[in-house]
Design a protein around this nucleic acid. Structure first.
Lengths: 191, 191
DNA sequence: TCCATTCGTCACGAAACCGTCAACGAACGA
DNA sequence: TCGTTCGTTGACGGTTTCGTGACGAATGGA
């Protein structure tokens, strides 16, 4: 718990059997204050354990016989889900006034006129505008679209091109704002 | 896909081997338009399958040997996660009256007005105000932000710049107090 | 009271970061 | 096969931020 509070934890891979406190208790303590993804990792392939672990707020239960690459895949899936917008984000229309996005048809309109976006541009916009006001770090963007390996610079170029298409005045961005040294933030109130 | 679009689906339990289209393809099609939780359910306990399924956007991969109650537990966990607010480990708002900090948007407000901080300034403030009343030594600060190598003087300058921005009267600091010869302490009661 | 140390402020050069343009290769459809 | 579109990387200029030195004010002890 001390280490959890001390640093910025993105995900917890938690053994159940530990000297002193057991994993279930720790999970409960953390769940009381945080929604951070918790994945149980245990030697026991035991139904009761699995149900208990998943029941008290765990996101997954991995038995130690699993291959390392399966563990990695499950960790990635948990991170993706935790970073993704909540599921109710399948709204018919994301409306920001002059800018409108129809997720179903992947159609983006500026002042009513449809604007063609490339796949990357669309995904970028979608991720940003689904969480208005929230900072999305380069790290998150790279994890989401470039499997963690990639360059900030690549992100910048795509942002530039996206702005070129959706911003009334690309030189003075009104929607996609940069956060110095960290990432980007979508500014705009949904209606 | 027709049935998916026709009704309001909360979660998908997807077999991989199906006549006609395979589960992976269907998963990809759905992921293109929706973030709905998808759990693979397959007879094959196959690493490649698992990694592929989780890689293309699946939330879990359950082998059919799993007990019914484990399946139920995993479905519940997926629903819980999908319906949870997008919140993360960080608290929603650090409120100290006139001074407010929103970790999600990295936004700092003084008397309601947003104040732009540089990365260093923000991280400094964040670290300090997460432990109100507690003294943070120069050593701790240097370890955290300057990898141990650095000068106390550097810290001082950053503190000064931070005060300039967030203190109503920078000459008489009300939030960031100096502890002679040791470090700094954030004074302010969280609400 | 006096002194040594620490602290706060200012100014300045170096470094990091951002946005833009251009070029290259891969993927795609005709 | 060919032409086009898309994604990535490199280079460059402008801007912001960072760390250091200098100096006076403040602090605590003798």
């Amino acid at each position: 718990m001390a280490r959890f509070h001390a640093s910025d934890v993105h995900l917890i891979l938690l053994d159940i059997m530990m000297p002193g406190q057991d994993g279930f208790e720790l999970c409960r303590s953390i769940r009381a204050v945080s929604g951070v993804p918790i994945l149980f990792l245990s030697a026991r392939d035991d139904d009761m354990h699995k149900i208990r672990g998943l029941g008290i707020g765990g996101d997954d239960y991995i038995v130690k016989t699993a291959s390392p690459s399966e563990i990695v895949a499950r960790v990635k899936a948990a991170l993706r889900r935790a970073e993704a917008p909540p599921m109710h984000a399948a709204p018919r229309l994301l409306d920001f006034g002059r800018l409108q996005i129809e997720p179903a048809s992947r159609d983006v309109k500026v002042d009513g006129a449809s604007v063609p976006l490339t796949p990357r541009e669309y995904e970028l916009l979608r991720l940003l505008c689904e969480r208005p006001g929230q900072v999305i770090t380069y790290e998150q963007l790279l994890r989401q679209f470039w499997e963690g390996i990639g360059d900030k610079h690549t992100v910048r170029v795509h942002i530039a091109r996206l702005r070129e298409k959706i911003e009334p005045d690309p030189a003075r961005p009104g929607y996609v704002a940069n956060v110095w040294g960290v990432g980007y933030r979508f500014e705009g109130k949904p209606r």
